[in-house]
């Protein structure tokens, strides 16, 4: 297990408070309803899984929640603030970070620079500061570099700091995306299939990192198909089917839910039984 030194100290999870809520979210693509009234709350300080069959609208929901896509109707709240259809940069500045189903690294930048981009409130992004307060810019840059190197060491990417991000392997890109999100000191982290296509050892590592983030007080919502991972690290599960919220609760309870078993779990169990 690793120790995360980059986020605020844990204050203890609170299942009665919601870091993120959506109500009646809909989204259609040329008449096809990808999301059809999804409604759920993500408890603060916990790890929540968003599961469902392929085509259930999970990634579309994450795209809408992170502002990468607008919804046709419905509302979204982050920590009580209505952020419905806000652009993603404003949602990110509220403390919601995300990763992508297919890793999207900033390929022309080095691994270290990928993290530095994510540092919030950079004085050096103002032209006035660049030319008239260069010492303040340099000082903050040194602090950000030191923190980014700490995070890279935590996530096992330190030795790759000077490599272009496009040169990394698939698993390393997954780690880079998570560490980049951590650099932004998120309050809420949306992970879109963080374990997809990675080897078992790395799945264990990523699971450990997610639990570290939870211990540091970060709320995590992750799309995941690997139910053994969900069972081990997720406190709460949301089941999505045909764009709607089918059920929410603990995975052990959902296994008893006939609708959930028919819509998703039965399919997964069959698949694991037959090969």
């Amino acid at each position: 297990m690793t120790t995360d030194r980059t986020t605020t100290p844990a204050t203890g999870p609170d299942e009665t408070r919601f870091a993120l809520s959506c109500d009646g979210i809909t989204k259609a693509f040329q008449g096809v309803r990808a999301v059809n009234g999804a409604t759920f709350d993500v408890p603060e300080g916990l790890v929540t899984a968003l599961i469902g069959p392929n085509g259930a609208g999970k990634t579309t929901v994450v795209n809408i929640l992170s502002g990468s896509m607008t919804c046709d109707s419905g509302t979204e709240h982050i920590g009580g603030t209505d952020v419905t259809n806000w652009p993603s940069y404003r949602i990110a500045r509220l403390g919601l970070m995300r990763t992508f189903q297919l890793s999207r690294e900033l390929g022309g930048l080095t691994v270290l620079e990928n993290l530095l981009v994510a540092a919030p409130d950079q004085a050096g992004e103002s032209m006035v500061n660049v030319f008239f307060r260069p010492s303040a810019v340099r000082r903050q840059e040194r602090e950000n570099v030191a923190r980014a190197l700490d995070i890279l060491e935590t996530y096992g990417l330190f030795h790759l700091r000077d490599n272009r991000a496009s040169d990394l392997s698939g698993g390393q890109k997954k780690l880079l995306e998570i560490s980049r999100a951590v650099m932004a000191s998120p309050k809420v982290l949306l992970l879109d299939e963080p374990m997809a296509g990675v080897n078992p050892a790395l799945i264990e590592r990523i699971g450990g990192y997610i639990l570290d983030l939870k211990a540091a007080g970060v709320t995590v919502l992750m799309i995941e198909h690997n139910l053994s991972v969900v069972e081990r690290i997720c406190d709460h599960v949301i089941v999505l089917a045909e764009g709607q919220t089918l059920a929410t609760g603990k995975l052990s309870d959902l296994r008893e839910n006939e609708e959930v078993v028919q819509a998703y779990l039965g399919e997964v169990i069959d698949a694991s039984t037959h090969g």
């Binding site: 502002g67 652009p87 993603s88 940069y89 500045r93 970070m97 999207r104 981009v117 932004a184």
Partner: peptide, 9 residues
Amino acid sequence: VVAAALGKD
């Protein structure tokens, strides 16, 4: 898209 998701306008 990534830059925007990291808070860049």
